[in-house]
């Protein structure tokens, strides 16, 4: 079962809509709540990353009987140094973003910790694609 959500850069009031929708779907499917929690944490972080850093993006969600696959494709500045961005506590978020409670760092490591499979492809000046997979059992 597939879903698609568009995300606009800079629109924090809408950040979290995709994760809320996915959460609702997984609950209705009766997926274990600890698994849902991991999906939501990972997806929410990734969704907010697009809002905070990219110009726009699309979230592709594919739910099968054994798990969920998430693909987040954004058009944005890309990540110049992926290992650095994967370091806990590292953040490039602007002060105004931090004032809103976002951008405390830990985004990517937190996503990776909650995922069974995680990959990141990025091209500076073009954008970033994240792939996250979480198994149901």
């Amino acid at each position: 079962m597939q879903f698609e959500y568009k995300v606009e850069g800079g629109d924090f009031t809408m950040a979290g809509v995709a994760s809320s929708q996915v959460k609702k779907t997984l609950k209705q499917l009766g997926v274990d709540s600890s698994v849902i929690k991991r999906v939501v944490v990972a997806l929410y972080e990734a969704e907010v990353n697009i809002v905070a850093h990219a110009y726009r993006g699309v979230i592709y969600v594919d739910i099968e009987g054994d798990g969920i696959k998430l693909k987040l494709v954004d058009e944005g500045p890309g990540i110049p140094d992926v290992p650095l961005a994967m370091t806990k506590g590292f953040s490039t978020a602007s002060p105004s973003v931090r004032e809103m409670g976002f951008g405390a760092g830990m985004g990517l490591p937190n996503i990776s910790e909650n995922a069974d499979f995680f990959s990141i492809e990025t091209q500076v000046g073009q954008g970033t694609t994240l792939q996250i997979e979480i198994n149901f059992t």
Partner: peptide
Amino acid sequence: EPRSMVKYDRDITIAIEKMESAR
């Protein structure tokens, strides 16, 4: 303990099929 609200089916694969129909 949580009280699960079974919407479609206890089997996730069947639940997904039913949810697709509902969508």
